[in-house]
């Protein structure tokens, strides 16, 4: 807000990025980053700003993804309709869920969202006549090039950030933060806390559901293990929020970028650097190292979260002034 030109510069960069970055692999990563921006923003609204920890983002993500997939496989409608519909149907799930489960507070609510996640995963696995169970659903991709997907993902990411930003500047935003800070005080200030918590959850579910539908359209294949995955979606959503900055507008953007990068660095053994070392030196143990490193990416998430919580409790965006100060300090003696 101090530099209103910042976001526009970033937007400009993101608009021309795929034109400069022609490698399909990096375009793929950028699409994932943008999808995570939407999921992270959704998570951040309900958990970061409203203080109700969502441990089951995959419930809404998977629901959006399956909405898009089923539209195509069962009704023969274009899976792109899943984008609006996936969001709306996720809200239709969030509404009764919130109405029942917002009587729970703190960790109990978080556990209820975890349960919602697991319920949907099992339903999607067991209800084979509808979802084909573990076989999954294949959707024909519309485009061969990644560019259209990139711009759709960018539009969704922008929609998420702008939505969260607008909401947080409004009366709703004040109410959400009041509820996070002290629910009893908020209630006695005349705020209908149940209503506003549900409102926040519904907006979150909408954004996460759209991201899920985007995933179906882009990947062309979904199964319950992937889209309702606890550690690949639900936990990842929390990590994106925490690393980027809980309760910050641009936190999920930074978090998504870092988390996708970290995941890929480990998964590909430092973008193939380890592989290259192994090949050029001929050290026999390198293949073992590569195997362990690629399996360690979940461990790396854990370590990253510990480091962030210890040193940057407000995330990278939330503690940006702290980071800048320490960078400035460490540079100063050198000058």
């Amino acid at each position: 807000m101090k530099r209103p030109s910042g976001p526009f510069l970033l937007l400009g960069l993101l608009l021309i990025l795929p034109l400069m970055l022609r490698d399909a692999y990096y375009q793929h990563l950028m699409i994932l980053v943008l999808m995570w921006v939407a999921i992270g923003s959704g998570w951040n609204l309900i958990s970061g700003f409203t203080g109700q920890v969502l441990f089951g983002a995959a419930a809404f993500f998977g629901f959006g993804a399956y909405t898009a997939a089923l539209l195509s496989s069962k009704l023969g409608v274009s899976a792109w309709w899943g984008l609006p519909l996936g969001g709306i149907l996720s809200v239709a799930i969030a509404f009764p869920f919130g109405w029942i489960c917002f009587r729970l507070r703190g960790p109990y609510f978080a556990l209820a969202t975890l349960a919602l996640n697991e319920i949907f995963r099992h339903v999607a696995t067991i209800w084979e006549s509808l979802t084909d169970g573990m076989i999954g659903i294949l959707v024909m991709q519309t485009f061969i090039s990644k560019l259209p997907y990139y711009y759709v993902a960018l539009a969704i990411a922008i929609l998420s950030i702008v939505t969260v930003d607008l909401v947080m500047r409004s009366r709703w935003g004040y109410y959400f933060v009041s509820i996070r800070e002290d629910q009893d005080a908020a209630e006695s200030m005349g705020i209908d806390t149940l209503y506003y918590k549900m409102l926040s959850l519904c907006i979150s579910a909408f954004l996460i559901g759209i991201a899920g539908a985007l995933y179906t359209n882009y990947m062309g294949f979904i199964d319950p293990k992937v889209v309702f995955s606890l550690h690949e979606i639900s936990i990842m959503a929390i990590l994106v929020g925490i690393v980027g900055g809980v309760g910050t507008i641009y936190g999920p953007l930074v978090g998504a970028f870092i988390m996708v990068a970290v995941q890929e660095i480990f998964r590909t053994g430092g973008f193939g650097v380890l592989h290259f070392i192994g090949q050029s030196t001929g050290w026999p143990f390198m293949s073992g190292v590569i195997k362990y490193v690629s399996e360690a990416h979940v461990l790396s998430f854990g370590i990253l979260v510990i480091v962030v919580i210890l040193f940057l409790p407000n995330g990278i965006v939330g503690d940006w002034s702290l980071i800048r100060k320490s960078l400035f300090k460490s540079k100063k003696p050198a000058v």
């Binding site: 800070e181 002290d182 009893d184 005080a185 006695s188």
Partner: peptide, 9 residues
């Protein structure tokens, strides 16, 4: 409230 409940942050 007797035990004050400011919205801390």
């Amino acid at each position: 409230f007797q035990v004050v409940k400011p919205l801390k942050r």
